[in-house]
Computed example of a mutant assay.
Amino acid sequence: MKLVVVSAGLSVPSSTRLLADRLASAAAGHHSEATDVTVEVVELRDLAVEIAQSLTTGFPGPALGAAIDAVRGADGLIAVTPVFSASYSGLFKSFFDAVSGFDKDALAGTPVLVAATGGTARHSLVLDHALRPLFAYLRAVVVPTGVYAASEDWGAEGLAERVDRAGAELARLMRPAPADRTAPDSLGPVVPFAEQLAALSRG
């Protein structure tokens, strides 16, 4: 099974990436030993230029196209963003705009664990007023436990337990996609972006 982690952290090192890695480890750890879980991390800071270009051209570049393909082929998704102005970051939203713009059914039925980082606990409601509605609109299945980590949560009691609980919930919802995975609404097989772009250039 394939677990894809989308991290919208901008700094290096990043608390957003740290939380994403802990959630991925928890989710993978709750699968049985007989289940092979492959984890792929998508760092949005590395895709910022291509994401911006895709908004004006309507076409993802090669790296962004590969990231979109990873999300479309995921059996489970972890999406983590820093909080900016009491909501998700613009880079985070623009990436998922690009994903849904290329394939409106990319996340339909996909289990998603939402998480966020911020400087203060006052922004913890971002999980419910911003992230859950976004993924509900994309028709993903959002796990019950979201994880918010404020600056004071690192090293404090409670964060590790929330991470473990959220990871376990995601693991229970993940199911391997069929080999001939077909997009919802009879759109046909999911074809990688690179193949679609090559077909367009031949036409």
Rank of each mutant, 00 (worst) to 15 (best):
T56N: 02
T57K: 15
T57F: 09
T57H: 09
T57P: 11
G58Y: 07
P60H: 00
P60W: 02
A63N: 10
A70K: 07
A70R: 06
R72W: 02
A74F: 07
A74T: 12
D75A: 03
G76S: 10
G76K: 05
A79Q: 00
V80E: 05
V80D: 08
V83Y: 06
F84N: 07
A86S: 11
G90W: 05
G90R: 15
G90I: 07
F92G: 10
K93A: 14
S94C: 14
S94E: 03
V99G: 08
G101E: 14
D103F: 00
K104R: 09
L107Q: 04
A108S: 14
A108T: 15
P111K: 04
P111N: 13
P111H: 12
V112L: 03
V112W: 02
A116S: 05
A116I: 11
A116T: 12
G119C: 12
R122S: 06
S124N: 08
L125M: 13
P133H: 05
P133Y: 02
P133A: 13
F135Y: 15
F135L: 06
Y137F: 07
L138S: 12
L138T: 03
R139P: 04
A140S: 13
A140L: 11
A140G: 12
A140I: 10
V141C: 10
V142L: 03
V143S: 12
P144W: 01
G146Y: 01
V147S: 02
S151R: 15
E152N: 05
D153T: 07
W154G: 12
W154C: 08
W154A: 09
G158I: 11
G158H: 14
L159Y: 03
E161C: 07
R162V: 00
V163F: 12
D164L: 03
D164P: 00
R165G: 14
A166K: 04
E169T: 08
R172D: 13
